[in-house]
Design a protein around this nucleic acid. Structure first.
Length: 498
RNA sequence: GCGCUCUUAGUAUAGUGGUUAGUAUGCCAGGUUGCCAACCUGGCGACCCGGGUUCAAUUCCCGGAGGGCGCACCA
């Protein structure tokens, strides 16, 4: 197989090293479903470990909720209404049309938004509308439900969650008790979400079952405008593309300080600016270079039903263009207002020392798609350098931290020493991989292509003076170090990466 | 979901109505090897699934699944 610097080589690497694969593959697969293999899962876990450590620093507590919730939850959240599309199916050629969009197109002068199914069907009859593809008539309007429906117990209708966020909000009264009025309440949740995509494509970028890591700030209206943490980050410069720039067909973000965005009213709320900062910060520590990142604002009709302002963090990829890996939403008090109404709970609470004023908390939401992070991180770190695949992952994210080799495999005492170095690293809980097969060069290349930063080779001299070769992935340069210092040296090197 | 197109070892590919289904790479075992995909020997491993046509189907036909592209969809 020739190694060319293109995304075919990259795609082949994913399959060859079995990072993830279609599922259930032996039965032909089901579109939109993938399984992670150990190396892919190691990467995912390393990303999560890093995120969890940082989120603790930012004051977030983690919760975990069921992935299935009864119908009423999704009625309250608005998903039942917004995630079910009316569709028209041609009786003959089976082509599917989104009913409301189709009618609006055909009858541009009428107001279609908000019409009942019956009213839409009447319009179709009245205007004799037929399938543009083959000219035949339609079936009755059907529902296409983007949420996966199931039954709990005997006859309770329930849905698999299309986002983790809503399930977090349901805990609000408990979280509020726990928080002792220290606002904002900062909560995160990691877990699966499910969407019944009509045609899932682009591999793990659009799965029907995918992982989200979502951060929520429950915050007072006043506090959003006078947010203490904002003061510490207001000088930070972010690559921003607001929708006014997009209207001028500009795709390159502007580097603006958060303070400027507030002063020029690009952003309304300092607390929201802080959320954009956390989003950008977490993305940067994964090792994404500045040039491939932009934060893009949604236009008004691009926004979700609950959002007052929305920005996506996007990564520039070779294969798929700009890919959203995170959405930041100002959900206002929409969610708690609705869940308060539907559950008859009182979420109108006192958030300040002034015991007179009560309010329903605002929610600011940061939603990462972990699988999209994995894809984009692998793609941006993928390099071909003079016929060598080098996956330049941050060393603490790679599946292996270090690999240990005997220079030759048929010298028993070299092999023994190599194995003991390997075990010693494992004893110190440094993720080490032992490999003795093939030439030394081949073993280096095997590690390069899965991003292992350090390789340790035990040779004839090692037997004499207890020293080994420490070889670096990116430069291929080698240091001579003492075995007794190896653990500390590697730990120190890892420490220089966040 | 519609249209076009594709599907052969882990990966990348060749090819065929009757073949021991080829090649490269990979992987395994052994040999060799004093540091960057070396070499030698031996071995492993594939025609997406179902039906039809046929004496015979991996190959032709139909259907399905999955992938790619375009359209639609992507709260």
């Amino acid at each position: 197989m020739k190694i060319e610097d293109n995304f075919e080589t990259f795609n082949s690497l994913i399959r060859r090293k079995f990072i993830w694969g279609p599922s259930p593959e032996i039965y032909g697969g089901l579109a939109g479903f993938y399984s992670y293999a150990p190396s892919g899962m190691a990467l995912k876990n390393n990303i999560l470990n890093l995120f969890r450590r940082e989120l603790q620093y930012f004051g977030f507590g983690e919760v975990e909720c069921p992935t299935i919730m009864p119908e009423i939850v999704w009625r309250a959240s608005g998903h039942l209404e917004r995630f079910i599309d009316p569709v028209l199916r041609c009786k003959k050629c089976n082509t599917l049309y989104r009913a409301d969009k189709f009618l609006q197109e055909q009858l541009p002068d009428l107001m279609i938004d908000g019409l009942s199914f019956q009213a839409m069907e009447d319009l179709i009859k009245k205007h004799n509308l037929a399938c543009p593809n083959c000219g035949n008539t339609f079936t009755k309007i059907e529902e296409y439900n983007l949420m996966l429906k199931t039954q709990v117990g005997n006859n309770v209708t329930a849905y698999l969650r299309p986002e983790t966020a809503t399930t977090t909000y349901l805990l609000f009264n408990r979280l509020n008790q726990d928080a002792r009025r220290q606002y904002p309440i900062r909560i995160c949740q990691f877990g699966k979400a499910y969407r019944n995509e009509i045609s899932p494509r682009q591999g793990v970028l659009r799965m029907r079952a995918f992982d989200q890591l979502e951060l929520q700030l429950f915050i007072g209206k006043q506090q959003e405008m006078e947010f203490e943490d904002y003061e510490e980050i207001k000088d930070k410069i972010l690559p921003l593309l607001d929708w006014k720039l997009q209207e001028k067909n500009i795709v390159k973000p502007e580097k603006i300080s958060l303070e400027t965005t507030i002063n020029t009213k690009i952003l309304k709320k300092p607390a929201y600016a802080y959320c954009l900062y956390i989003t950008y910060y977490l993305t940067r520590i994964l090792g994404f270079p500045e040039e491939v990142i932009r934060l893009r604002q949604h236009s008004i009709n691009e926004r979700a039903h609950y959002a007052d302002d929305a920005w996506d963090l996007e990564i520039k990829t070779k294969q798929f263009g700009w890919v959203e890996i995170c959405g930041v939403h100002d959900r206002t008090n929409y969610d708690l207002r609705r869940h308060g109404e539907f559950s008859k709970q009182n979420f109108n609470i006192n958030m300040s020392s002034d015991s007179e004023t009560k309010e329903i908390p605002q929610i600011l939401e940061i939603a990462f798609g972990i699988d999209r992070i994995i894809y984009t991180l692998l793609e941006t770190n993928f390099n071909v350098e003079e016929g060598r695949i080098n996956l330049k992952l941050n060393p603490n994210l790679a599946p292996n931290i270090v690999a240990v080799f005997p220079l030759v495999k048929n010298k028993e005492n070299i092999r023994k020493l190599a194995l003991s170095v390997h075990r010693d690293l494992l004893e110190n809980r440094i993720n080490s991989f032992y490999d003795a097969s093939g030439s030394i060069g081949k073993r280096y290349r095997r590690q390069d292509e899965i991003g292992t930063m350090y390789c340790v080779t035990i040779d004839y001299d090692s037997l004499e003076d207890n020293s080994v070769t420490l070889r670096f992935r990116d430069t291929m340069k080698q240091d001579r170090v003492n075995i007794n210092e190896l653990v500390e040296i590697i730990r120190n090197k890892l420490r220089t990466f966040k």
